[in-house]
């Protein structure tokens, strides 16, 4: 079977977790939310970034986060909840410090993604959409992450971990668990999921210059062309 358990009963669906009302949202966060709202011709456009910001502060979409967004944008909490529950990047329960994703859409699955997910899941002792008790890792089964020429693909805090193998996955988890320095194959040094969410909210972390310009696979065609002396007509480079 595919490994997706076919779930048909959804007792907890429909909204965020209201049992945990804790929040770290403070005046600074609210000011940043307002700043996001002011970036757009119409404030509501900032809702997705604002929810990313909520995650960076509260580690999940918190009730307080929903209420703050509704309040600032002048929409109802039901409307915010409708948006927050639509997108898969928004979490209902606290994510780990590091959010591990394993792609298991057809191509990655076939090429080893299924086995990787199994391995990582066993190693962390958690299934997809769960977080380790120490709060260090959360795991997610990913749909295609636009890196198929680097399959099988994993993501850590939404940074590419290309061309994964069981050995590399093992090492990756061990290093992260030991707080060793880990870098994305096509990105920056790994920090944390929350810091990633802050960048996605639109607050730069100034680390754009880390990592290579492109991975090997991305450069393959250009490399062959160079070798063969192929180019677009008349020095077609723009």
């Amino acid at each position: 079977m595919s490994g997706h358990e076919f779930q048909s009963f959804f007792p907890d669906s429909g909204g965020v977790d209201m049992t945990d009302t804790s929040t770290n949202i403070d005046a600074t966060t609210l000011a940043e939310m307002r700043q996001l709202a002011s970036r757009y011709p119409e404030a509501r456009s900032a809702l997705l970034p604002m929810l990313h910001l909520v995650q960076s502060v509260d580690g999940r979409i918190s009730p307080a986060g929903i209420e703050a967004c509704a309040d600032i944008l002048g929409i109802t909490t039901a409307q915010v909840s409708g948006v927050a529950t639509f997108y898969t990047m928004y979490r209902r329960r606290p994510g780990g410090k590091h959010h591990i994703g394993v792609c298991t859409t057809a191509l990655c699955a076939v090429m080893g993604g299924d086995a990787l997910l199994e391995q990582v899941s066993e190693k962390l002792g958690i299934g997809p959409d769960e977080t380790t008790p120490d709060g260090k890792f959360s795991l997610e089964r990913l749909e295609c992450n636009a890196a198929c020429d680097f399959a099988p693909v994993m993501m850590v805090n939404w940074e590419f971990m290309d061309n994964m193998t069981p050995e590399k996955a093992q090492q990756l988890i061990d290093d992260l668990a030991a707080d060793k320095e880990v870098s994305s194959t096509r990105g920056a040094k790994i920090t944390s999921w929350r810091e990633a969410e802050r960048v996605l909210a639109g607050f730069s972390d100034g680390r754009a210059d880390e990592g290579p310009s492109a991975g090997e696979a991305s450069l393959l065609g250009k490399k062959i062309a160079d070798e063969k002396g192929w180019a677009a007509p008349k020095g077609g480079k723009a």
Partner: peptide, 21 residues
């Protein structure tokens, strides 16, 4: 007939700091 490969968009992907202005 153009060449088999015609890097235009990807022509600069290999240059150092290609993402910078």
């Amino acid at each position: 007939m153009a060449d088999k490969l015609t890097p235009v968009l990807s022509a600069n992907w290999g240059t150092e700091n290609s993402w910078k202005i």
